[in-house]
Structure formats: structure tokens, C-alpha cells
Design a binder for these strands. Sequence first.
DNA 1: ACCGTGACGGCGA
DNA 2: TTCGCCGCCACGG
Length: 109
Amino acid sequence: MQTVDDKITAFQERVYSAITRIPAGRVATYGTIAKMVGCGSARAVGQALKRNPFAPKVPCHRVVSASRSPGGFFGETSEPAINKKCLLLKKEGVTFDSSGRVNKQHLLS
DNA sequence: ACCGTGACGGCGA
DNA sequence: TTCGCCGCCACGG
């Protein structure tokens, strides 16, 4: 990955790489990604994602919380940002329940 | 080098 | 089932 010369740690690059593996119409939880990169903390993944310098390259919108909550979007947990994220997922074929939570059937292992 | 913060997760009330 | 608290990891100041 050398699209930009941003200086990021190997950990972040690792996280981005894992997220890139997520197919459209599917979503993964921060915890799952954490395990992928060999980390036991989903928080660390969130930190890396919020810094995501590869915005369109890395589909961060396909990453949700284990509670099936949308999570955040570009460092913003506000309604508008989340709304945009959910809209993108819906576009990819992801469905949500009445509570606004992602259906687990879309969860990637 | 140290402390505080944060797109979370799991357990308990 | 929902709300709250504590715990983990990595990063910025």
C-alpha cells in the first residue's frame, strides 16, 4: 500500500488490509478485525480506522460494533455521519432492524 | 517516558 | 432486554 506517503504504523496498515478483505454486502465487527490483526482490543482498531488515510480504499463503513450498532463514521458518532454510513451499507445490500442495528446475517465471521 | 483519550467488548445489575 | 462499569491496546500530546 503506497498510495500516499502517510506515515502509519504497521498495525494500522494491517487493520486497513484486513478491512479491505471485507466483501461488499458484508460487515465485520471491530473485535473480529482486532483478532484478524492479532490484537485483543477492538478499541485499537477503532483508533486506526478513525485515522483511516485510505478513505475510499478502505471501506470503513463496513465495520460495525459487536453489538450490531453502526458504530462511528470518520471519527463521528453523531447521527448524520452514522446515517450516511447506514445508507452506504444499505446500498451494498445490508439490511437493518427497527432498532437501526445491522442484521447479524451480514456479519463476516 | 508518562498520562489521558477513544469509531469497543464483555459482564453485571 | 437495556443501561452502566471496567478492562484492553494503540496513539497523541
